[in-house]
Design a protein around this nucleic acid. Structure first.
Lengths: 158, 158
DNA sequence: TCGATTTAGATGCCACGGCATATAGTGTAC
DNA sequence: GTACACTATATGCCGTGGCATCTAAATCGA
């Protein structure tokens, strides 16, 4: 097999390919449903959910959480603010930054969207994660995520 | 915990978040190294590798493999062709499409880039996938990927 | 065989992210 | 308190992908 005949003895390229393909397709499928039912996309849903669960986050906090550049994050917050889902409040401790918070409408939106996401994931993934291999998978991905985050792997410059 | 207090009893949202975060950071990190050492990005590496391993693919085959729109794939092939890594040959069986093939330079590039990717993944992921939970994880992701592909989940329109 | 439908892919417009840069506010040393 | 380095983020330019649309070629049906 391929992993024996090239320089990838542990088959990490195959793992990486599967990881990327699963992510792409799930992300695209969630985009479709969220756009159709709530007029947002997955990245916006995740930002709104983070703000709901971590009120008072700053732009840089969102950027670090999602491994997206600060500039792009600032523009994303602009859009959420224009839609009336997020507000920038002055940060009393540092006038360079703002504290982000959901509006009431933003809170309603993220709660409704979360139900959509839960349903969609259940339908898309089904019982693939049931049982012991599924539990191991969750655990391994959580571990890998913390590892990458601790080492600040893959953070864009800007 | 969160998975008990909302409508996500099986915790799929947490799994999905971990999946997306791992993918983003690994993808970004690979981008950095591939750009620095070979002047390409991960999506280009994956397209070149697919063409090396599946010569005679068409634009639509690449699009289906990576769950990217056909228009975007066509433009991506344009770029690879401009760089001299890929050629479009007329398809004798269907004059609407072309058969894609790597040039010699494209072959050299993808082989070199593959070694970079192997090294980078080994360094980034390390021994996280060693052992039985790691093996279960590979298996589960491979299964999930086939499931999504069979059902054509997350294919962009264009 | 000829018109209608479908398919492959090329192209234009737009949204979004990366990266570089600009700006304003903060901390520090003296 | 003033100069200097640093930090948070806003903004501009560019590359890339999505989606709609267009064209040519293949396929289908009578």
């Amino acid at each position: 097999m391929a992993s024996k005949s090239n320089g990838d003895p542990t088959g990490l390229q195959g793992f990486f390919a599967d990881l990327v393909r699963c992510e792409t397709r799930l992300y695209n499928a969630l985009n479709d449903r969220l756009r159709e039912r709530h007029g947002i996309v997955t990245s916006q849903f995740e930002a709104l959910r983070h703000l709901r669960d971590h009120p008072g986050s700053r732009v840089a906090d969102l950027a670090a959480e999602f491994a997206v550049g600060i500039g792009a994050t600032s523009k994303g917050v602009d859009r959420l603010e224009k839609h009336g889902w997020v507000v920038r409040r002055p940060n009393p401790a540092d006038r360079r930054s703002s504290l982000l918070a959901l509006t009431d409408e933003g809170t309603r939106l993220v709660d409704a969207a979360e139900a959509t996401v839960t349903d969609a994931l259940a339908e898309l993934i089904g019982d693939t994660l049931d049982g012991s291999p599924g539990e191991a998978t969750r655990q391994v991905l959580a571990t890998l995520r913390s590892l990458l985050e601790r080492r600040q792997i893959g953070m864009p410059t800007g």
